[in-house]
Amino acid sequence: MKMLIIYTHPNHRSLSYAFLQEVIRGSKENTSIQEVKVLDLYEEGFDPVLVFNENKRRRDMHTDPDLAVYRDQLMWADKIVFVYPIWWGRPPAMLMGYIDQLFASGFAYKDTGGLLPEGLLKGKSVVCISSMKGPALYPLLWLYNAHKTLMRKALFHYVGIKKVKFFEFGSMESPRGRHKQKLNRIYRYFKTVNG
């Protein structure tokens, strides 16, 4: 299994970065994972801003040469792991800008003329690891599960990825947030995952 980790947090002293390290540590001990690549969107200097004009058209995003390396990474990966905080009930704007540009028509999906498109990223799996200041049940009870619905249904299912797992950790700024247990849970998952 080939795994691409997309890390989205501007601070390498953050809890998100600690989760990234546990993903990598567990993966190195897993014989089912042959290779791991990490895309750190902030360190990469990824530009999340969409630009459409007479030279750049939305319908041509799937062939934009500036995004070719990122498309190749997504095609290469069997498993895509997203590590990010939840800010204002959703992933950071940097990650949403990546999604807006990479999960484009002609690459991630193809319009069929029907209600739903044909997903072109079938056979891949996704893991989302996110943390937030609020309690774990806040997104479910107050936001009607908006984060998971956005990621699972509006994005991944739309492009053909049906196998989606979430680790959504709450109360992460509290001293009672049980950070060590949650970090260990991520390590153990990636040490043993096989698909």
Rank of each mutant, 00 (worst) to 15 (best):
L39Y: 10
V81L: 07
W142P: 00
I129L: 14
D64Q: 00
D40G: 12
V49N: 12
M3T: 15
T192H: 14
D66I: 04
N194C: 13
P10T: 11
M3L: 15
D111R: 11
A93I: 02
A136P: 00
A136L: 07
V51S: 14
I6V: 15
C128P: 01
K133D: 14
W87E: 08
S174P: 03
I6Q: 04
D60H: 01
K56D: 11
L120E: 04
V193G: 08
A108L: 04
G26T: 03
P65R: 05
A108K: 06
P135N: 09
L74D: 05
M3I: 04
G160D: 07
D64Y: 00
M132H: 04
Y158W: 15
G123T: 07
A104V: 03
L141E: 14
V36S: 12
T31A: 15
D40Y: 08
N194H: 13
F169P: 03
F169D: 06
G119V: 01
R58N: 13
L102P: 05
T63N: 08
M172G: 08
Q73A: 14
H157A: 09
A104F: 00
I5S: 08
G177C: 05
G45P: 02
S14Y: 10
F46P: 05
F46L: 03
E29K: 11
R58W: 13
A18Y: 07
S174L: 02
K37M: 13
Y189I: 03
I33C: 10
K122P: 13
M151Q: 10
F107Y: 04
K165P: 04
V83Q: 09
P65V: 05
L150Y: 15
A77M: 02
G26L: 09
S171V: 00
D47Q: 00
F82R: 00
G177Y: 03
Q181V: 12
D66K: 07
P48E: 01
N184L: 13
N30H: 10
A18H: 10
I129W: 02
G195P: 06
A68K: 15
E22T: 09
G45V: 07
S131G: 02
Q181C: 08
L4I: 12
I86L: 14
V126C: 10
V49K: 07
M3D: 10
T149H: 12
P175A: 11
N30Q: 10
Y70I: 09
L120G: 09
P85G: 07
I161M: 11
P139S: 07
R90T: 14
H12G: 11
A146T: 06
S14Q: 06
V36Y: 04
W76T: 01
V69L: 13
